Computed example of a mutant assay.
Amino acid sequence: MRALARRQRRRCGRRPDPRLAIIDTQSVKCLGLRGPCGYDGAKKVVGRKRVALVDVEGHVLALAIVPANVQDRDTLPALDDGKGKWLSLRLALLDGAFTAERCRVVEQDPDQKGFVVLERRWGVERTFGWLSHWGGLHRERVGRLDVATGRLARVASLMAANALNDPA
């Protein structure tokens, strides 16, 4: 995944190693399976949370899956393995549910109603949409978290390889 992300970045005219990342979570339902899952009270979903670290173009840098009852701010350690491969990262954009050092929290304007994509966060929202579309990953189907993370990484790699082969 790292090699594909670097090639995609070069193709977009960017340096191969990103300095800015966007981190977000997505709660998804689980099918009837064994393994860790939880209840996300904010989204009213019984299942798991996908945690994604992407660059500003939406290229996947790291992925992880945790039970849905884990708070967003507590999901950051799940990305530690992936973050360690990107030593060039200097700043991360997060939404208001996260709190961490060296991170810029982007908050919604109090006058806005409903769902609004926040500043520079369209990349991660688009990536979650691609993952759901490409892999049929609207729901989690795998019991073990490491297998589910591997399946998500496989779909992200296929997505990246297809984008590199697409001449448009």
Rank of each mutant, 00 (worst) to 15 (best):
W86G: 00
L87Q: 06
A62C: 10
W86I: 08
A42G: 10
D74R: 04
V117K: 04
M1G: 07
D55S: 07
A5F: 08
V54D: 09
N165T: 13
R7E: 12
V28Q: 09
L118S: 05
P18C: 11
K49C: 02
Q8V: 01
Q8A: 14
R102G: 03
L137W: 11
K113I: 04
L63V: 10
G32N: 13
V142D: 04
P67M: 05
H59Q: 05
G84L: 05
F98R: 14
A5D: 07
G96N: 11
G41T: 02
L4Q: 09
G143Y: 10
A42H: 15
G32L: 10
T75L: 00
L87D: 14
F115E: 08
L53G: 06
K113Y: 12
G32S: 10
G82H: 03
R2S: 01
L31P: 04
Q71E: 08
D24Q: 03
P18H: 11
R50V: 03
G13K: 08
R7A: 15
R141Q: 12
L93T: 12
D166M: 08
I65C: 08
G38E: 04
V60N: 01
D109F: 01
V105E: 07
A78N: 11
F128R: 03
Q26S: 12
G38L: 02
F115H: 12
C103F: 10
R151K: 13
A100S: 13
R104P: 01
A92I: 07
R15P: 08
R102N: 14
K113V: 15
W86M: 02
C37S: 15
G35K: 03
L53A: 11
V116R: 14
A163N: 01
E125I: 08
T25Q: 07
G35C: 04
V124A: 06
N165R: 10
A168W: 06
G32E: 09
W134I: 10
R14H: 10
L20C: 15
A97D: 03
Q108K: 13
C12W: 12
V142N: 02
P18A: 11
G58R: 12
E140H: 14
R34C: 09
K44E: 02
R120N: 07
A68L: 07
L131A: 04
L79W: 02
G58M: 15
R50G: 14
G123Q: 08
T99Y: 11
R126A: 12
H133G: 06
R120I: 13
V54F: 12
E101F: 00
I23K: 01
A160T: 05
A21H: 12
E57C: 09
R144P: 10
